[in-house]
Design a protein around this nucleic acid. Structure first.
Lengths: 344, 344
DNA sequence: GTTAGCACTCGGACAAATTGAGTGCTAAAT
DNA sequence: ATTTAGCACTCAATTTGTCCGAGTGCTAAC
């Protein structure tokens, strides 16, 4: 549909605009070494590109800026692959410098390094706890009424909650109960726990424990662990450097959106397809994101997807560089974690 | 030092400026009902007040705005006590509407309500874990090499960490060891744990456990729980509404300061005196805080201070209202928590 | 000691003029 | 049939000048 020359012009416009942030005019373009025809020709081509919706003017006699459609085409077809510098690679490696003990730590560190590397905001979705398998349940009485219930998973993740223990349940009952639970539920993924308790463990409990029913619901509720992955942000203030956010109103709506977390989490969940995903501006369907793009990659252990790493930047983002970095971090993360899980 | 009339004028200037955000001129002042003398007189008085450093001009023929010294005097001597509306009280009560299970939850909720109530940013310093007393230690093996160590405190707080277990330590050793630790350390404040292990428990371990030394350091390190209280923020974006932060540069330096957390935590720790504390603008000695004031109150259980609740706003802050609200929330929080601890 | 009056200052709002980067269109050149 | 040079035109941004209003300081009268 587009001629080679139009593609060339589109690419150069977007590259230049990403670099400078300024609308690009025909004269500027004609001076580029890639371009060997006059500004008048360029003007004609630009008029066509505009008609097709790939570029826009900010006012009637201004240079052109990419439209969302333009960025979309650029991302889908025109990206010039980037190479990482030694320094970049060094920084990425530094994520894995220390021995890993806890998943969350390394995930948090990834977020920090990513924002550092890109100067945008990074968001990392930690591994979903729900797929971890139960290692141990423990209930530790605090006083007559309350106890703290603790769940340990095979990955070393610990969930805990304070619960009320009915007066009718005594310490030995509690202990017996915990033993049964541990016996029956070892290795069960957390998300199936609740179901399993009602279907398989309830019966056993009934035969062994007095008053089992008064505890059953409490226990089941406790084991009903949060479904949502934790979200880690880093570099939230990086967006404030971007010239497109010199308008305090835009900053405000963006920051509120981020602070609210819920909508943003949902958006991120839509990006769970494997590989790199890019959504540009209003494609994100979230107010406050009109001027932002979101790029995500997923990391996995073996074949199983664990989580998502993402970069949030202005639509005028260095797509090429960010994609390269995300790819690299996601793949390194996958390798390291796969290794780690195997020794677990 | 200042005459009554000067005080009156200072107070009215600050009240008006806090309300409007605009420099206050002699004509505006002379129309206030509290004021019964002419604008010329006011001009004379204002010239004096300026000379003494309580007010400033933004340019040579502008109205006056309060200086930091002015705010300081205002806060120390001129505050007109405020009454909370029914609505305010209702919101504050809503913090305590649900049954408390975990301290952190209620502390987080306080932060949310505070920012909601004031339209400024609120920060809450949670109870320091270090003063909690040990309820139970648990070590749960994950595989040959690693285990997760869990510490439960009397308040139901759970700390956990993944540790490496030397191959030479077997499961029964581990169990014995945990038993000894629990026996000897029950009720010890977390901050004293490490010390106590070396001084009192090491000997016992030596006599009962093979290879006790290879574990000792690991255990001691694990029990060396973070000293710092957790900080909860709410309403970070509220500052963006304030007209004094229409300048993106100011927003940026403030936000970076907040994101960094460390300096801000230190500042907050300086506010640990009982009762209300106010620091104004550069008194905070923190870049990014030049245009901000910080007001804090502490909450306690019985006589023991637990934590701090704080409001961060522009120097042009509604001091009176904020102080009233903080006082109320701190006292309610103290009452509820004291009660809660007693039943613990 | 207080106030009215006056000359003066400055910021903000507005309009007019200027500049420069950019466009679209047309006719000539290739 | 493309490409390009040239030209008229547009608009944002900057500069300049003007005016107004809110405010001040000072002085002389009350």
């Amino acid at each position: 549909m587009l001629t080679d020359r139009q593609l060339l012009i589109l690419q150069v416009i977007i590259d230049d605009f990403i670099r400078s942030g300024q609308p690009v005019g025909s004269r500027t373009l004609s001076k580029k070494e890639e371009i060997s025809f006059s500004s008048a020709t360029i003007r004609n081509e630009m008029a066509d590109l505009e008609e097709l919706g790939y570029i826009e003017k900010t006012h009637i006699s201004s240079g052109r800026v990419p439209s969302e459609k333009g960025y979309r085409y650029y991302v889908d077809h025109l990206l010039s692959p980037q190479r990482l510098t030694q320094e970049d690679i060094k920084k990425i490696k530094s994520i894995f410098a220390e021995r890993i003990y806890e998943l969350e730590k390394i995930v948090q560190k990834s977020a920090r390094i990513l924002s550092d590397l890109t100067n945008y905001t990074s968001i990392v979705l930690g591994p979903a706890v729900k797929d971890n398998k139960l290692k141990r349940i423990q209930i530790i009485p605090l006083n007559k009424e309350t106890a703290v219930a603790i769940i340990v998973t095979d990955t070393g993740h610990v969930e805990n909650r304070v619960i009320t223990v009915p007066a009718s349940v005594n310490a030995s009952d509690l202990e017996k109960m915990v033993n049964i639970l541990n016996e029956r539920l070892l290795g069960v993924p957390l998300i199936e726990l609740k179901d399993k308790i009602y279907k398989e463990v309830a019966n056993v409990l009934r035969t062994h424990i007095r008053n089992y029913d008064s505890m059953l619901k409490t226990i089941a509720d406790t084991l009903d662990v949060p479904q949502e992955e934790k979200m880690f942000f880093a570099g939230k203030t990086n967006m404030l450097i971007q010239p497109e956010f010199s308008d305090i109103q835009k900053v405000r709506s963006l920051m509120m959106m981020i602070e609210q977390e819920k909508d943003f989490y949902r958006l991120l969940r839509k990006h769970s397809k494997k590989g790199i995903q890019v959504t540009i501006g209003r494609e994100n369907q979230l107010s406050g994101m009109e001027n932002c793009s979101l790029i995500t990659a997923t990391y996995s252990v073996g074949e199983e997807q664990l989580g998502t790493i993402a970069i949030l930047g202005p639509t005028r983002m260095e797509y090429s560089r960010v994609i390269t970095i995300l790819n690299r971090v996601a793949s390194d993360l996958s390798t390291v974690l796969t290794d780690w899980y195997q020794n677990n």
